[in-house]
Simulated scan of single mutants.
Amino acid sequence: MLDLYGADQAVRGEMEEIRRAGTSRGRWSAYRLPSWFAPYVDYETDASQVCTFELGIIPGLLQTEDYVREMHQVGRASLSGDTLDAWVSARLARQRRLLEEPRLELRVVLAEEALHRRVGGRDLMDRQLDHLISMSAQPNVIIQVLPYGAGAHACPHGSFVLLGFPDSDHESLGYMDTPIGGQLVDKPDEVATLAKLFDDVRSTALPVADSSALIRGLRGELVDL
């Protein structure tokens, strides 16, 4: 219809946003996602590539179920009951795109401190590290560790995500989590800044093979306090 009526790019963009909102709203409404996070999940659902830099925890798309549950239990909302189960299920559902066709491409730069942070007990963290190693073997998943030895780096103030889309008319988006919510970044200059930061930390991080070796070396070394 847009082609038939010769719609310009502005109209096409508005119609595409309406389509995305309509198809994804029903898909995720049952998971009771918070209002500040639901828009991000909608966009992630349509993305073909996710680039994420994480400082202190394992990125959500790579967390085991036990890790997810532990993080939600001690997180900003201290969830319990049905809502906790719904949020855990939502994260696991998002992860399925890494293994189902067409596969989501995931590029991760993970600060080494996240690997040392004991979430739950030692056994939980060993399983989490094993999962990272397993997922790093997937052809659509790239995991690089930013080691302590790299010293100061380009993004010490926080984590962020970049979303890329298969539709050339849909520009990339950014997302940043905060202690009181989350913020979508859609201004082109700000998205470009995040992309530059990601390139900078990626160039400083260890190569993929060395990153996997570092993760393997930590398995079994984390001590329960």
Results as ranks from 00 to 15, higher is better:
residue 1 M to H: 12
residue 2 L to H: 10
residue 5 Y to C: 09
residue 6 G to E: 02
residue 9 Q to C: 08
residue 12 R to V: 02
residue 13 G to S: 07
residue 14 E to H: 08
residue 14 E to L: 13
residue 16 E to H: 14
residue 22 G to E: 03
residue 24 S to K: 15
residue 26 G to V: 03
residue 27 R to A: 13
residue 29 S to L: 08
residue 34 P to R: 03
residue 35 S to R: 15
residue 35 S to P: 01
residue 37 F to H: 03
residue 41 V to D: 00
residue 43 Y to R: 15
residue 44 E to K: 01
residue 49 Q to Y: 13
residue 53 F to T: 06
residue 53 F to N: 07
residue 56 G to D: 14
residue 56 G to A: 15
residue 58 I to G: 10
residue 59 P to Q: 06
residue 61 L to M: 08
residue 65 E to M: 08
residue 66 D to Y: 09
residue 68 V to H: 00
residue 68 V to N: 00
residue 70 E to S: 15
residue 72 H to S: 13
residue 72 H to Y: 14
residue 75 G to C: 04
residue 75 G to Q: 05
residue 76 R to Q: 08
residue 77 A to Y: 11
residue 80 S to L: 09
residue 81 G to P: 02
residue 81 G to Q: 06
residue 86 A to D: 09
residue 87 W to L: 14
residue 89 S to K: 15
residue 94 R to K: 15
residue 94 R to Q: 11
residue 97 R to S: 02
residue 98 L to W: 04
residue 99 L to W: 11
residue 99 L to P: 00
residue 102 P to W: 12
residue 102 P to K: 14
residue 103 R to M: 07
residue 104 L to W: 03
residue 104 L to V: 05
residue 107 R to N: 14
residue 107 R to I: 04
residue 108 V to E: 04
residue 110 L to C: 14
residue 112 E to Y: 11
residue 115 L to M: 06
residue 115 L to A: 07
residue 115 L to C: 09
residue 116 H to N: 09
residue 117 R to K: 15
residue 120 G to T: 09
residue 121 G to I: 06
residue 129 L to F: 01
residue 129 L to Q: 01
residue 132 L to W: 04
residue 134 S to D: 12
residue 135 M to Q: 15
residue 137 A to N: 13
residue 137 A to E: 15
residue 139 P to N: 01
residue 139 P to T: 03
residue 140 N to G: 04
residue 140 N to A: 02
residue 145 V to F: 01
residue 145 V to R: 05
residue 146 L to P: 03
residue 148 Y to K: 06
residue 151 G to A: 08
residue 152 A to F: 07
residue 153 H to L: 02
residue 155 C to W: 06
residue 157 H to I: 06
residue 161 V to M: 11
residue 164 G to N: 12
residue 164 G to S: 13
residue 176 M to T: 09
residue 176 M to A: 13
residue 179 P to M: 04
residue 179 P to V: 02
residue 180 I to A: 12
residue 183 Q to L: 11
residue 184 L to I: 05
residue 185 V to Y: 10
residue 187 K to I: 01
residue 187 K to Y: 05
residue 188 P to H: 12
residue 189 D to S: 14
residue 191 V to M: 11
residue 191 V to I: 10
residue 192 A to I: 01
residue 192 A to L: 10
residue 193 T to L: 12
residue 193 T to A: 15
residue 194 L to F: 09
residue 195 A to F: 04
residue 196 K to V: 04
residue 199 D to H: 06
residue 203 S to H: 12
residue 207 P to W: 02
residue 208 V to T: 10
residue 212 S to N: 12
residue 213 A to F: 03
residue 215 I to M: 10
residue 216 R to W: 00
residue 217 G to E: 08
residue 218 L to R: 05
residue 219 R to F: 03
residue 220 G to T: 08
residue 223 V to N: 12
residue 223 V to C: 10
residue 224 D to C: 09
residue 225 L to Q: 13
